[in-house]
Amino acid sequence: MRIILIPLLLLLFATGYSTGHSGEGQALYEHHCARCHGTDGARGMFGAKNLQKSQLPDTAIALQIRNGKRIMPAFKKKLNPDQINELAAYIKTLRKPAI
């Protein structure tokens, strides 16, 4: 019974752990991005792009977060790769469907 129970508990813990980080992308966005992009992604202060209209693929979003672009600073020294991926995933949730 223990042979089955221990892996099951580990699986549940791992699943709960990864789910618990889902709010990290939003927290990172609010801390690092909302000032220019706005809380909804549409502000555009200092020439920041409207993230609601962005059609960039995941890799391009992560690349811009990592390396910056024009006035946008690079975050590769401030955020680890997992945080950059969490942030990119959250940014995608700001998109509005094309009409």
Rank of each mutant, 00 (worst) to 15 (best):
N85Q: 14
N50A: 11
L12W: 03
L56A: 15
T59A: 14
I99S: 04
S54F: 06
L12Q: 12
F13W: 15
L63S: 14
R35P: 00
F75I: 00
F75S: 00
Q83W: 12
M72S: 05
G68Q: 08
N50Y: 08
K78E: 11
Q55F: 00
Q26K: 09
A60S: 14
K77G: 02
M1V: 13
C36N: 08
R35Y: 15
A27Y: 05
K77V: 02
A74I: 02
T15E: 09
R43M: 07
Y29E: 09
G16Y: 04
Q52F: 09
N67C: 01
Q55C: 01
R66M: 02
L51G: 11
L28A: 04
K76D: 12
A27D: 10
A60D: 15
L94E: 14
A48C: 10
A42Y: 02
I91K: 12
H32T: 04
K69I: 05
M1K: 03
K78F: 06
I91A: 14
G44T: 11
R2A: 11
T93P: 09
L9N: 00
F46A: 13
I99N: 02
I6G: 00
L9D: 00
I3P: 01
N67E: 15
L51Q: 15
L87S: 08
R95D: 09
Y29G: 13
Q64C: 00
S54Y: 01
Y29H: 09
R2L: 14
L12R: 02
L9M: 12
A89H: 12
H31V: 04
A88N: 03
K76Y: 11
K49D: 08
T19A: 12
F75R: 03
T93H: 07
T93E: 06
T39A: 05
Q64K: 07
P57T: 08
L63P: 01
T93Y: 11
F75N: 03
A98K: 09
K69L: 13
L94Y: 05
G41R: 12
P73G: 08
L56F: 06
S22Y: 10
T15R: 06
T15Y: 09
P7D: 04
P97L: 08
M45H: 11
F13Q: 05
P97C: 02
K76L: 01
R2K: 07
E30A: 05
T39V: 12
I6A: 04
T93D: 06
G23Q: 12
M1P: 15
M1Y: 00
L5F: 08
I91G: 05
T15S: 13
I91P: 03
G38P: 10
H21W: 07
Q64F: 13
I65T: 00
A48N: 11
A34R: 07
A62R: 14
P7T: 05
G38T: 13
N85M: 14
R70V: 10
L51T: 05
H21N: 03
P81K: 01
Q64E: 11
